[in-house]
Structures are given as structure tokens and as C-alpha cells.
Design a protein around this nucleic acid. Structure first.
Length: 305
DNA sequence: AGCGGTCAAGTTGAT
DNA sequence: ATCAACTTGACCGCT
């Protein structure tokens, strides 16, 4: 019997549960009133949809759900940004948030965020850091509404000097409000920052490391998966979050960084099975991939007993 | 209804 | 120089 809580990422493959969005360009053609009405409609739709997503997880034994960053479309856009309170559907939106937060809490469903690639806390460009901080504060507001406990980002760029880049990352992290900083986690990536690059930072700054084993295999650092698992766990003051995926064309195919539809159990670290951790499944078949992993681990368990 | 170009934002590395 | 990739394709105007 595994202790793992599996996490579904953002969207569904087969289930008719669809989040909506819009573009700044599309809103440019509308009067302020119309664009505001449209945004309000999209927010309401998406919060309802989030309720459906969490309900699906509850009914299917999925213990964690990663929420799309675009839940409230263009919320921080310089021209089209808005406060939820100002939307026509504000009351219903807040009420739905309250309901789904209580539901997720009652059913022990963990929710997380993974802000997109434009959040770069260690950029040498001040305007990039400013908008990143703003974006993270926005995520923390959503996290409070939903009851999410993790906002996970990558370390950012290297800019030819990893040491000073990590120093800037620390400055960025410490510029966050405490209510935002307490949700923040850092994930190893597949090009620049391996776990061994990030662990000293994580220990020093008390920021948990989200260990992505696929990225670690793409960008190895001399430490084994078992060792890294243990060190990553030591950075957490609560249930750790890890990531797993399989390469689209196998490890010998081209561009193994890209994700497969499903998880090959050979890529699933055996050591993880007994741990009380959240494993977010990054696979294109989404809920189908999770169902398959859960089944395979269950049959694995009964076979070895 | 279906198709293709487009979409706020950063950084890296393959081609 | 261009572009795909990244946690995720969806939207919109055109035919």
C-alpha cells in the first residue's frame, strides 16, 4: 500500500472539464465595460470549473490538483488587470472559492500552483523581478482563496554566473511578503539548476525543494535519485512535493526532455513508493496517466507481498 | 464547422 | 537568426 498522494496537473484529457481564457489582444477591441464583463464571466466559469476538477479528484482517489496560473485571466496585466472585488460576479466568485476551499480541506485534497516561465526572481533586469514579485503576490492571494499551500517556481536563468544568480534569487525570495514566501518552493530544472545546485540555497533560505526526477535525469549532478530524494525531503516542513514524467520517445530518442502521454514504471523511483509524499504526474494523458500509475503501483504492491 | 495564426511576460539551447 | 520548450493549447477571425 503506497502512501503517495498523486497530483493531477492543470487540465484533463478525457473529462469535459475545461478552463477558459482570453488574450489582451482580444480585449483591445472591446470597450472597457465589455472587456470587464467578459473577464468576470471567464473568472466565474473558471472557479466553477475548479470546483468540478476538485470534485473529480475526490471521486477518483487523486489527492492533489495543480491549479492553472490563468485561473483568473489577465488578473495582473498592466492594462487589463483587475481586482476580483470589482467584477460583476464577485460575490458568487468569492462564495465558490469559499466552498471549494472547504471541500478540498474536508476531503484532504491538496492544491498547488506552478507560476509560468515569466516569473524569474533572479533576473538582472529589475522590471522582470518587479513583475515576478507582483505575479507571486497574486498567486498567494489565489492560494489563500483556495487553501493551496505550494507556489512552485524554477530558480531562473544563470546569466553566465550561477553563484551571483543564486544570490539574486535569495534577494528576490526575501523581497516577498511573508504570506507569499511561506508558500514558495523551488524546483530543479533540466537545463540550468540541478538539485545539488539548489539544495544549499534551500537549506539556507528554508525554501523547500520540489524534486523533479525527470529533470534530474536530463541534468544529472553526480548524486543518486535515492540520495537526492532524502536531501529534498529534508528541506520540507510539511509533506514534500515531487514530480515524475517519462520521455516522449524514450531515453534514447530525440529530445527526452519532452513528456510522454503516460509514466513508464521504470522511470518511477522505487524508493518513493513507501514515502508520504505528493507526486505530481506530468504526463500528457493527464487523469488517464494518473489512473494507470495508481493501478500499476497497486499491482506492484500486491505482487511483492 | 473547421482551420490556421496568434497570444503579456523570460531564458536556454538546438537547429 | 529563429524557434521550440517549458506545468497547460485555447481563442478568434477567416473561409
Amino acid at each position: 500500500m503506497t502512501m503517495i498522494r498523486f497530483g493531477l496537473c492543470c487540465v484533463f484529457h478525457d473529462e469535459p472539464i475545461k478552463f477558459r481564457t482570453t488574450t489582451a489582444a482580444a480585449l483591445h477591441g472591446l470597450a472597457r465595460k465589455q472587456s470587464f464583463a467578459k473577464l468576470s464571466e471567464l473568472c466565474l466559469h473558471n472557479v466553477r470549473t475548479l470546483g468540478l476538477a476538485i470534485d473529480y479528484c475526490n471521486r477518483n482517489g487523486i489527492g492533489s490538483f495543480r491549479v492553472q496560473s490563468g485561473l483568473l485571466p489577465l488578473r495582473t496585466h498592466p492594462r487589463h488587470g483587475y481586482n476580483i472585488e470589482d467584477l460583476a460576479n464577485a460575490d458568487e466568485i468569492f462564495s465558490l472559492f469559499g466552498g471549494l476551499r472547504a471541500f478540498a480541506h474536508r476531503r484532504n485534497i491538496r492544491t498547488t500552483f506552478h507560476p509560468d516561465q515569466f516569473v524569474v526572481l533572479n533576473s538582472p533586469r529589475p522590471e522582470v523581478v518587479v513583475s515576478s514579485l507582483r505575479e507571486l503576490e497574486h498567486h498567494a492571494e489565489m492560494a489563500e482563496l483556495i487553501g493551496a499551500d505550494v507556489i512552485n517556481i524554477h530558480a531562473g536563468g544563470v546569466y553566465g554566473d550561477k553563484e551571483s544568480a543564486l544570490k539574486r534569487l535569495a534577494e528576490g525570495v526575501n523581497s516577498l511578503s511573508s504570506r507569499t514566501r511561506k508558500h514558495l518552493t523551488i524546483e530543479n530544472d533540466d537545463r540550468s539548476y540541478s538539485p545539488v545546485d539548489l539544495l544549499p540555497f534551500c537549506w539556507q533560505e528554508q525554501i523547500p525543494l520540489v524534486y523533479d526526477v525527470h529533470h534530474h535525469r536530463c541534468l544529472p549532478d553526480g548524486f543518486s535519485i535515492e540520495e537526492t530524494t532524502e536531501m529534498a525531503c529534508s528541506t520540507w516542513n510539511r509533506e514534500p512535493v515531487f514530480h515524475v514524467s517519462s520521455p516522449i520517445h524514450g531515453w534514447t530518442g530525440k529530445n527526452p526532455r519532452r513528456h510522454h502521454d503516460y509514466i513508464d514504471m521504470n522511470d518511477f523511483p522505487e524508493k518513493w513508493i513507501k514515502l508520504g509524499i505528493t507526486v505530481e504526474v506530468e504526463a500528457k494523458a493527464k487523469e488517464l496517466a494518473i489512473r494507470r500509475v495508481m493501478n500499476e503501483i497497486m499491482s506492484l504492491g500486491s505482487a511483492t507481498i
